[in-house]
């Protein structure tokens, strides 16, 4: 679960933190597209390195590296399955290795891009930006509340786990399937209590006049400024530069 730490927002004061989520979203969309479009591992490595300056400026290095470290486990899986698949289909071990490397870098690049976005964007700014791109407020609020209740739920999961262990549930025992089954006595109470909690939260929302007006006010409004223009400019230019490597130079 350590991967998740690499996505959890912590307050920061860097320029990147203050850039509008919508501008950062442009970076996420363009560079995600590149990870899908590129095949050559070196090009993918360039896409991955695009997030390095952002990491440096926003000083999120330690958390970002946690997300990367956490993803290494998945990479082993991806590499092996990809390798087997390619060898099966083409019989070429060389192709399989190259493709496995590409797949792995592609995955790390995706993790890196999204991690950078979530690490530098506060949930409230993200919610507000969703409202401002005309996503209905109900959905934006649902998203915001999901972010709010993640730590609450994980604490509750821990409490339930402790309670079940103290009644003799041995969670670390048995083979893989057995271990998955061991989670059922934790999951069921967690789900039920989450439903109850959801009802209470709904009561609290109604008690604060939720739904009183179709067009509600927002305490803060995001505005695109000079730093957003600069960020978008750099993003688009580097996107075009990378794109031209394939389109003009013909590197796959």
């Amino acid at each position: 679960m350590k991967v998740l730490y690499g996505f959890e927002y912590r307050r920061g004061v860097s320029v990147i933190h203050r850039i509008d989520p919508r501008s950062k979203m442009i970076y996420v969309i363009l560079f995600t597209a590149l990870t899908v479009y590129f095949v050559n591992p070196l090009l993918l490595l360039l896409v991955l390195s695009s997030s390095l300056p952002i990491v440096a400026i926003s000083r999120i290095g330690s958390r970002w590296s946690q997300s990367i470290k956490g993803s290494l486990f998945f990479i082993a899986f991806i590499f092996i399955f990809n390798f087997i698949g390619i060898v099966w289909a083409t019989g070429s071990v060389y192709d399989a290795v190259i493709s496995g490397i590409s797949m792995s870098i592609r995955f790390i690049a995706l993790i890196s891009i999204f991690s950078v976005f979530f690490l530098t964007t506060s949930p409230e700014d993200l919610t507000q930006s969703m409202v401002q791109v005309r996503i209905p407020y109900d959905y934006a609020l649902t998203f915001n509340m999901a972010m709010r209740f993640v730590p609450t739920l994980s604490r509750e999961a821990q409490i339930i786990m402790d309670a079940q262990k103290s009644r003799g549930l041995e969670m670390e025992k048995g083979n893989l399937i057995r271990r998955i089954k061991n989670y059922i006595p934790v999951l069921i109470p967690l789900i039920i209590s989450s439903f109850r909690r959801a009802e209470l939260v709904a009561d609290a929302m109604e008690s604060r006049a939720f739904g009183a007006s179709k067009k509600r006010t927002s305490l803060y409004v995001l505005a695109l400024g000079k730093r957003d223009a600069l960020f978008i400019l750099i993003t688009v230019l580097s996107f075009l530069l990378l794109l031209s490597l394939r389109l003009v130079l013909g590197i796959q």
Binding site: E124, F149, M205, F210, R216, T217, S218, L219, V221
Partner: peptide, 24 residues
């Protein structure tokens, strides 16, 4: 714990007046 559903105290307190569509 169940009646605070926003991510900051300020947003929490502003939630009601925001719903009433009062001026910012």
């Amino acid at each position: 714990e169940n009646e605070l559903f926003c991510t900051t105290v300020e947003r929490e307190v502003a939630f009601g007046p925001e719903n009433l569509a009062l001026p910012r």
